[in-house]
């Protein structure tokens, strides 16, 4: 569904992404892990068409390059920052994005979308009155409202309580089970392990390692058990322990 082939992107003299190739098949969840400044956000921006690569290509299914506006209809994007309008209600927010993606949604359908993320009872309240966890769930509802075949989720559970985190994870699993391709970035190793079918470890703008959790632990884990700290030790081994900016 998503195919990045040899994509590179530079900001001036800084090489943010260098010859990255990554594929996400329909029904698959791929976790993109890496320390801060590894190039994850740039990769996400390239995958969603927010940036054009300096070289290489990005393809969304058979539709083509996501820098083409109509191709982006196939993408559901939940950015890391809570990019929501505090003065709008949840209903208005979901309806707005449905319209922007060319999908008409009745109030009933909008309420169903909000029910899916557990916000139906507060659908007509302004987003500004929501807690961080509720905003994070609404962020996901907005990405899902037009039922895209590809979901790009940039740290979808950052800073939320365990209940909201569990709820969001359940939704991601359900979407993948229904055939949706999911590209997920996270710093939460447990989340990556629980949700991802494959993991891509990124650092210095390059994919350092790619495979299932078992494969990564087996090849790079240095005897760790298949557990969250195992994946973490793989990450630390591959990306080093020095602090990043």
């Amino acid at each position: 569904m998503l195919a990045l082939r040899e994509v590179s992107k530079s900001y001036g003299t800084v090489r943010a992404v260098e010859r990255v190739s990554l594929c996400v098949a329909a029904g698959e969840v791929v976790g993109l892990l890496g320390p801060n400044g590894a190039g994850k956000s740039t990769t996400v921006a390239l995958a969603t068409g927010l940036m054009r690569p300096d070289s290489g290509s990005v393809m969304i299914g058979a539709a083509g390059d996501p820098s083409n506006a109509s191709v982006r209809r196939a993408i559901g994007f939940a950015p890391q920052e809570l990019a929501l309008y505090d003065m709008l209600t949840a209903t208005e927010t979901v309806k707005l994005y449905a319209q922007l993606y060319g999908a008409f949604r009745s109030r009933r359908q909008v309420l169903e979308a909000l029910d899916m993320v557990g916000l139906a009872t507060r659908a007509d309240e302004r987003v500004g009155s929501y807690s961080g966890g509720m905003k994070r769930r609404l962020n996901l509802a907005v990405a899902l409202v037009h039922e895209p075949p590809l979901l790009v989720l940039d740290e979808p559970t950052a800073g939320v309580d365990p209940q909201s985190r569990a709820h969001v994870r359940g939704i991601i699993r359900a979407r993948a089970a229904s055939g949706c391709a999911v590209l997920l970035t996270t710093h939460d190793m447990e989340e990556a392990e629980k949700l991802s079918d494959r993991i891509a470890l990124m650092d210095h703008g390059k994919i350092q390692a790619e495979g299932t959790v078992d494969e990564l632990v087996a090849i790079h884990g240095a005897g760790s058990s298949r557990a969250a700290h195992g994946l973490e030790s793989v990450l630390l081994k591959l990306t080093g322990r020095e602090l990043r900016e």
Partner: peptide, 17 residues
């Protein structure tokens, strides 16, 4: 500043739109 413009640009709309 809040990222909503970026999100709008991720929708199937051109920046001009």
């Amino acid at each position: 500043n809040r990222g909503t413009l970026r999100r709008l640009c991720a929708a199937p709309l051109s920046m001009h739109m």
